[in-house]
Design a protein around this nucleic acid. Structure first.
Lengths: 187, 187
DNA sequence: GGTATTTTTTGATTGTAATCAAGTAGCGCC
DNA sequence: GGCGCTACTTGATTACAATCAAAAAATACC
């Protein structure tokens, strides 16, 4: 638990009261390889902070699995739209490796946001960071060739590259496994 | 000014003190058609709330102008990365129509976030909404055909469609003007 | 009102990555 | 250690939108 508190303390002041509330509310989880953190077409009730391990979010597009994102140590993962708006969506989340995580429900978060200005700060800062990260990804998808996409992935996701099957990387990059294979053969 | 305050009050409680601080800090602007709100390769120092009119953000890619986004009445516009991180970036912002806007600097915002929990709430809620909107755009860019992209634009941006040259719409959608023209000819 | 410029349309060709189709290698599991 | 499955590679073909090119329409400007 102290690792989650450390993470939060990087972005906001963490009062003893807030730390205590977080300790009470956060749930700890262990997931085996391929175990689901969240099932498609259900409401995603929790947001997960990955302490150890690696997870992915994906959905089924015309019978093919499309990976939409990854989260490893010290990162957050949830099905954002479903979680924030309380509606089902097509995404599922699964552990790529055995994973340990803490989670909070939306109710927990909203309570903490209400109770603690500093937690509201944390929420704002994290959302801003996610927004900027997503902008960069959008630009990469929009303007770069498959080779550049792969290069970008290698430099920005080096720590997890070796832990992922290439098919997942390909669909995350918006290219086919065949194209990724050819890109790698050349580089 | 009261329109900006109304906008903020939609997302958070607006105390008289916060309203007063906003009145003191927000600057009012009038921009003529094609006038720049922000110049490329400089630090974007302000975020603009559009009271009346229409603006676009764009950059120069290999000699071609690529439109990256629009903001009309009741929407915010800034060059996000530059504004938040205080570094230059290649984006410029220009008025598509004569435009009236209010603006806040990062210093203003950070002061207000510090001073007022309710303003920090507003920041978090707006960033969350922007994040979800961007996710939807990312999915549209990634998975849909030019015709579907245009359809999506028509349904989600109807109020501004008629106010924009098609070339701007095309580059926003990540397709060429020729392709957009052909899509429109068919539908 | 007429000229100049920009925007939009239409047509022909090309390039790139997707698709289709095998085949090979790697790995988990008994 | 061998079987069976999944992951990855390689090759041939196709589809789609980009590019190149030019004409037509709309708009701005004197």
């Amino acid at each position: 638990m102290h690792t989650l508190l450390q993470h939060i303390a990087q972005f906001t002041t963490l009062s003893p009261q807030l730390a205590e509330e977080l300790r009470q509310r956060a749930q700890h989880h262990c997931f085996g390889k391929n175990e689901l953190l969240h099932t498609a077409d259900t409401v995603c009730r929790r947001t997960y902070w990955i302490q150890q391990g690696l997870v992915r979010i994906y959905f089924n597009k015309d019978g093919k699995i499309v990976t939409d994102g990854f989260a490893a140590e010290n990162q957050w993962m949830t099905s954002a739209y479903s979680f924030m708006r309380g509606v089902p969506d097509p995404y599922a989340i699964a552990a790529v490796e055995p994973t340990q995580a803490y989670s909070l429900s939306l109710e927990d978060l909203l309570h903490l946001f209400n109770q603690f200005h500093e937690m509201e700060r944390f929420g704002r800062v994290i959302m801003s960071a996610q927004f900027l990260e997503q902008s960069e990804r959008l630009n990469s998808l929009r303007f770069t060739s498959p080779a550049e996409k792969y290069q970008h992935f290698c430099t920005h996701y080096r720590p997890i590259l070796a832990r992922l099957p290439l098919g997942m990387v390909a669909s995350y990059l918006g290219i086919t496994p065949e194209t990724l294979s050819r890109v790698r053969a050349k580089g």
